[in-house]
Simulated scan of single mutants.
Amino acid sequence: MKATKQQLINEIKLLERKYEMLVWYARKSEQQIATIEGVRIAADEVTRDYPEEVASLNSPLFGNWQHGFNSGMLAGTRFVLDALDAGIEEAYEIFPDLNS
């Protein structure tokens, strides 16, 4: 079955949210997660929703690679959504948008 444009946009938005949360998680220190209740709650949610990705982020062997991959995916999904919403020129002007 062929997806509609809106179905594709919805799927891209889900991926954007996933990678936004993973990039957010990677930017938090262990101290922030341990001492700030709101950060701890959100970090627990990310860990619950994306256990394999969080394990990879916390790996001394793969953590940097995983964070780079997540950041690239976040930038890519935002580029596509911005291009569809505001046009390709506007998307290039704000690319890569990694604010989270």
Rank of each mutant, 00 (worst) to 15 (best):
A75G: 09
I88H: 13
V23Y: 04
Y50N: 01
K13H: 06
F69R: 09
E11D: 08
R78W: 05
S29H: 06
N99G: 02
E53C: 01
E53S: 04
Y19F: 10
E20T: 11
I94Q: 13
S100D: 03
E93Q: 15
W65K: 08
S100H: 07
A26Y: 08
E20A: 14
E52F: 05
L98H: 02
P96R: 00
A26H: 11
K2D: 10
L14M: 12
I9A: 10
A26I: 10
E45P: 05
S29C: 05
D85G: 09
W65M: 04
Y50H: 04
V39C: 05
E93P: 07
E16M: 06
R48N: 14
W24M: 05
E53F: 00
G68M: 10
R48E: 14
A83E: 03
G76C: 02
G38K: 13
I36T: 13
I9M: 11
A43P: 01
A43I: 01
K5P: 09
L84P: 07
L8Q: 09
G63R: 14
A26F: 08
D82P: 03
M21K: 12
G87C: 10
E11T: 06
A42M: 15
E30T: 13
G87H: 11
A26S: 14
M1P: 05
E16R: 13
R40S: 13
W65A: 07
A42K: 15
E93W: 12
G38F: 04
S56P: 04
E37T: 04
K5C: 10
I36L: 06
E16S: 08
E89I: 15
A26C: 09
A43Y: 00
L57V: 13
W65R: 06
E30C: 09
Q7C: 04
D85Q: 14
S56F: 09
V80E: 08
K2P: 10
A43T: 00
M73K: 04
E20S: 13
G68A: 11
L15R: 08
L74W: 00
P60M: 15
N10I: 07
F79P: 00
K28N: 09
T77G: 00
A83H: 02
E53V: 01
T35K: 06
A86T: 11
Y92Q: 14
Q31I: 11
R27I: 00
Q66R: 15
E16G: 03
F79C: 01
K28G: 06
R17L: 13
G76N: 13
G87V: 10
L14G: 11
T4Q: 12
L61E: 14
L14E: 13
N64K: 14
N70Q: 05
L74Q: 01
Y92D: 10
E20F: 08
N70F: 07
E52C: 02
A75N: 07
L15A: 08
Y19G: 00
F69P: 00
G72P: 07
K5Q: 14
A3W: 06
W65C: 02
M73R: 06
K2N: 05
Q32F: 01
A43F: 01
L14S: 13
Y25S: 01
G72D: 10
L98K: 05
Y19S: 01
K13L: 10
